[in-house]
Nucleic acid binder design. Structure first.
Lengths: 203, 203, 203, 203
DNA sequence: GATGAATGAGGGTTCATTCAT
DNA sequence: TATGAATGAACCCTCATTCAT
């Protein structure tokens, strides 16, 4: 790979990064290419040299986020201890949400506008949810955890973890964390883990 | 109040309703006055006769939502039973989120864009949170509930309830509820109530 | 019809006139809305207030021309004398081409670019040609005119008459007619009529 | 001539060919360098390496066409038989128009836009027309053909022959000739020759 | 009150061309 | 010789808003 191609990758990367940030903040329709270009540190004409269209860029970034999220599974590796799995999942998901909150934000923006780009993804999500629900149901049947509504149990994990991405600004104000500082991961994670472990009768 | 003034109120109401819906879906920058006028069933010129500016309309609607949300308190009336209070709060909040999801959605839109209109509201929110936290802390001190992080406990209630507004579309797809039907309030409420009661050691 | 509506019609008329002129000169792709607005004596924003899109305006103007041309039939009224019909048709067509050359020019522009807007019109044209061909063939069978290739005979009439619209500038230079003056209708008409009457053995 | 220079000529040829085709279809203003590059099978940057500017390329191609057309004279070689000359001229011109219709199309495009590039060519055309007119007038004076308007007679030959280039698409639709096939040269040539010979009283 | 018309600014995108490599 | 990158201008069109009527 030569220098020119490297630079191309760099610029493309800067554009995608900027796009994720801006789209997450103001959505597809609310984000101008001017805004995107400025955020990426290039001119509008330069931006359009690298992208096909604003919508295509949006789609590309959204697909990237969805793919990244797909890789965080409920059960990881050889785990089969309910407490371990739940704790691990909550902490992994929360970590991702605190480290890269723009992902969740972009996702909720897409949902808010009616999710026209998501049609092809629901089936895959349903399959993942079915997998995880099956595991939970088995644990319940085996008496290894209290009965819960498996799907809602999972959805509530999403709700709690993603809240600290989507509503991060509110969390900061309420918890009095300045914009420069980071939210206290351990504090939030502990409370969240306790919440779901206790629901499952595992703590 | 004469007929003309009545009609004026009606139109204003239609505008606010439409604005809430549209702003909740596509945000301030992403929503055009054309779009707003069409959603309100009037012309663009008529819209501008009734409003001062798009931003003013946005502010008005946002303030309305914030005011409405302020009216749902953690403790209601003379309640002082932890289980009763938690159950009531979760159910009230969830009901509001399922009945009028646009409120939460508008709110998250504002947060996503950095909440420039919210500066004056954080103090009030902090006060409310402090009130509720005080109650919870007292209950803990009195041994009437397990120790929790009071602020995070509340925030997680928000997270879970508002999730069914903000991520409603995803919830529908995962729970297989068609766009015309309603999410199953009792099912969701029961799981949510269990979640927080158990965390508090009250169930 | 009130004054405002009248003005609207006036402006719309001015736009269509300007559009016919400009599209005839530089085609759809080669004509900018700036150019159109200037030719119509309005601003670009004003133009876009009155039209849906440049392409729609183009289509509207093109359809208008096609409709106008459809109304010039080979046989008019109760005519059935070959010499009369041919003479009348050539003169009518030529008159139209000299009076409103932009029509033919717009048409040839559309053909030059591959006529993507004409797909629906060929059937109608074929039908008209078939009608006229039938008349000519009958005359030939009845011995009232010399045998000709009926379709090519008609097409050559089009060729000759429309030439004085499409190639008018060249005709002016060759015939030494200044841009302000008019081409000598009678001179051209007489030569053209002679051409086709003699071919038909009618002069 | 070395290999590099040969390749250069090849590419230049491809560019001119593509330019003729594209300019003939959509005119100077309506044809983009992108379109030209794609049609020539090269990149936009490569195109600009070979040409000075779009307008220069247009001028070059147009001049080429004009030069090529100048070489088809009314009278060819030692001919002096009116029927032979007319027949030959009509057939030669028609052949050129059917074989290379883009030439005529580019020419009419230039005329349609007001022929700003043609100012220097009218004198030469007038001279050619005067020559041919002189021959025709002599034939008439010598009683070797019927009196005609010599200039219009010539112009009508152009009209008829070029029609099958400029309006070829319409001709195909009316004559039911598919885009892949060729128009029937002999059929068209015969009718055209008859048309002008009869006008001259020579058939 | 209500509405057609108008507008200057800005939307996303392509343009012809230049430049560095 | 060739090509990725870059650019300022222009492309078509919509924007939020104002103004007559």
């Amino acid at each position: 790979m030569n220098a020119a191609s490297l630079k191309r990758k760099e610029i493309h990367g800067a554009i995608r990064e900027a796009a994720l940030r801006e789209f997450a903040a103001t959505g597809l329709a609310g984000t101008s290419t001017q805004q995107l270009a400025k955020a990426a540190g290039i001119t509008k004409a330069q931006l359009h040299y690298y992208i096909t269209s604003k919508e295509d860029l949006y789609r590309e970034v959204l697909e990237g986020i969805i793919a990244q999220w797909r890789d965080i599974f409920f059960v990881e590796g050889e785990q089969d201890d309910p407490a371990e799995v739940i704790t691990g999942y909550v902490r992994r998901k929360l970590k991702l949400c605190l480290d890269q909150p723009e992902g969740s934000r972009l996702f909720v923006q897409e949902l808010l506008r009616g999710a026209p780009e998501m049609e092809d993804h629901w089936a895959g999500l349903r399959a993942s949810v079915d997998d995880a629900s099956g595991v939970i149901r088995r644990w319940i049947d085996e008496g290894r955890m209290k009965p819960v509504d498996p799907v809602l149990f999972m959805m509530n994990i999403w709700a709690v973890t993603q809240h600290y991405a989507d509503y991060q600004l509110q969390s900061r104000r309420v918890l009095d964390v300045p914009d420069e500082g980071a939210l206290d991961f351990e504090r939030i994670a502990n409370e969240a883990v306790q919440l779901f472990l206790m629901r499952a009768g595992l703590a």
